[in-house]
Simulated assay, not measured.
Amino acid sequence: MPDNEQHTLSPRGAFDRLLDAASLISEDMRTALRADGLTTTRATVLFELAHRGPLTQRQLADALRVTPRNVTTLVDALETGGFLRRTAHPDDRRAVSVELTGTGRTAVERMDRDADALARELFGDLPPEQLGVVVRTLDRVTARFRDAPSR
């Protein structure tokens, strides 16, 4: 990446920095999750269950935008690890509900604490007006990605 000011103050310079930050955050997250025997995808399953409550495997597949077969593999691994359990669905005899165990809830709580600590480390010393600029800018970038046609 060239270190000249023209490149630095360009859309590409901003994009390169966003990629660098995303890569560093992803690697930090992967390292922390590995200590619990988790991957980012498995952690996402735990977060979905923590925030939405018990779900059927079909609902989980829809929430994750993956196939039911992929969810089965994820749920199998997380159940083996003690993070979640399958139970009979209360209203549909054909469906199976997936819910967090105590171990799963503890893992989500730890991930939340770690995310809070990293957020404070990265942004805690920014004055409110600068933090507002960061948040608004990232909201705008995120909205553009969501609204853009698939590439």
Results as ranks from 00 to 15, higher is better:
Met1Pro: 13
Pro2Ser: 13
Pro2Ile: 06
Asn4Arg: 06
Asn4Thr: 00
Gln6Tyr: 01
Gln6His: 07
Gln6Asn: 04
Thr8Asp: 02
Leu9Trp: 10
Leu9Phe: 13
Ser10Cys: 06
Pro11Glu: 06
Arg12His: 08
Gly13Val: 04
Gly13Pro: 05
Phe15Ala: 11
Asp16Gly: 04
Arg17Gly: 08
Leu18Tyr: 02
Asp20Ile: 03
Asp20Arg: 14
Ala22Asp: 08
Ala22Gln: 11
Leu24Pro: 00
Leu24Cys: 10
Ile25Gly: 04
Ser26Cys: 02
Glu27Arg: 15
Glu27Asn: 14
Met29Gly: 00
Ala32Phe: 05
Ala32Asn: 01
Leu33Arg: 07
Ala35Gly: 09
Asp36Val: 06
Leu38Gln: 07
Leu38Arg: 08
Thr39Glu: 01
Thr39Arg: 06
Thr40Leu: 15
Ala43Ile: 01
Ala43His: 03
Thr44Ala: 15
Thr44Tyr: 02
Leu46Ser: 07
Phe47Thr: 07
Glu48Arg: 14
Glu48Gln: 13
Leu49Phe: 08
His51Ala: 11
Gly53Ile: 04
Gly53Thr: 02
Thr56Pro: 02
Thr56Ala: 04
Thr56Cys: 05
Arg58Ala: 15
Gln59Asp: 09
Val66Ser: 07
Thr67Leu: 10
Pro68His: 11
Arg69Gly: 06
Val71Leu: 06
Val71Thr: 14
Val71Asn: 06
Thr72Asn: 15
Thr73Cys: 03
Leu74Gly: 01
Val75Glu: 03
Val75Asp: 03
Asp76Cys: 05
Leu78Gly: 00
Glu79Cys: 06
Thr80Lys: 13
Gly82Val: 03
Phe83Met: 08
Leu84Gln: 02
Leu84Thr: 03
Leu84Asn: 01
Arg86Tyr: 06
Thr87Phe: 00
Ala88Cys: 03
Ala88Tyr: 00
Ala88Ile: 03
His89Gln: 05
Pro90Tyr: 07
Pro90Ile: 00
Arg93Asp: 15
Ala95Lys: 13
Ala95Met: 09
Val96Glu: 07
Ser97Asn: 09
Val98Gln: 02
Val98Cys: 12
Val98Tyr: 12
Glu99Asp: 11
Leu100Gln: 05
Leu100Glu: 02
Gly102Tyr: 01
Thr103Asp: 12
Thr103Gly: 07
Thr103Gln: 12
Thr103Ser: 11
Gly104Cys: 10
Gly104Arg: 10
Thr106Val: 12
Thr106Ala: 14
Thr106Pro: 00
Thr106Cys: 01
Thr106Asn: 13
Ala107Glu: 04
Val108Trp: 05
Met111Tyr: 09
Asp112Met: 09
Arg113Ile: 00
Asp114Asn: 07
Ala115Lys: 05
Leu118Ser: 13
Arg120Ala: 15
Glu121His: 12
Leu122Cys: 08
Gly124Ser: 04
Gly124Lys: 03
Asp125Ser: 15
Pro127Phe: 02
Pro128Asn: 05
Glu129Leu: 08
Leu131Glu: 11
Gly132Thr: 14
Val133Cys: 01
Val134Ile: 15
Val135Ile: 15
Arg136His: 11
Arg136Phe: 08
Arg136Gln: 14
Thr137Ala: 09
Thr137Gly: 14
Arg140Pro: 02
Thr142Lys: 09
Ala143Gly: 11
Ala143Asp: 14
Arg144Ile: 02
Arg144Ser: 11
Arg144Pro: 02
Phe145Arg: 13
Asp147Leu: 11
Asp147Lys: 11
Ala148Val: 00
Ala148Trp: 03
Ala148Glu: 11
Pro149Asn: 13
Ser150Arg: 14
